[in-house]
């Protein structure tokens, strides 16, 4: 039995709040766009913004974790989290380099 005494404040609650309110926000924006399309207003760009928010949410969650690991001086996990962020960045760069005009 080893109780850990040196530990950063638990980031779980912060992550839970971020994901909960982030989902509400992204759903709200997407819903607004869908509703606009239904009543005949051009809503595609608003829906696209909602979709982009959904995709950004896990990346934000990684950034919050990175911050928590830095505060906790947990440098091994800081490196691990940075590797994940860099991998996602690489995927984005690949996506951009093959980009074509937004489909409708």
């Amino acid at each position: 039995m080893s109780k850990e005494t040196v530990k950063a404040p638990q980031p779980e609650w912060l992550l839970a709040a971020l994901l909960r309110y982030g989902t509400w926000l992204a759903s709200g924006v997407t819903g607004l766009g869908v509703a606009m399309s239904l009543v005949g207003v051009e809503g595609t760009q608003v829906i696209a913004a909602g979709v982009a928010l959904f995709i950004a949410l896990p990346v934000l969650r990684l950034l919050v974790m990175l911050g928590a690991f830095i505060l906790g001086r947990d440098y091994r996990l800081v490196i691990v989290t940075t590797v994940v962020l860099v991998t996602i960045l690489a995927a984005l760069v690949i996506g951009l380099s093959f980009s074509k005009p937004l489909a409708h």
Binding site: T44, G50, F54, G95, S99, K100, P101, A103
Partner: peptide, 28 residues
């Protein structure tokens, strides 16, 4: 799953493979 999917979804979004008019209602 969210982080894993964000890597591919981000790439597909920037590549223009995600059609908002389909993806939006489906996600919601």
């Amino acid at each position: 799953i969210g982080v894993t999917a964000a890597a591919s979804a981000g790439a597909y979004f920037l590549r223009g493979d995600i059609v908002p008019a389909v993806a939006g209602p489906v996600a919601l």
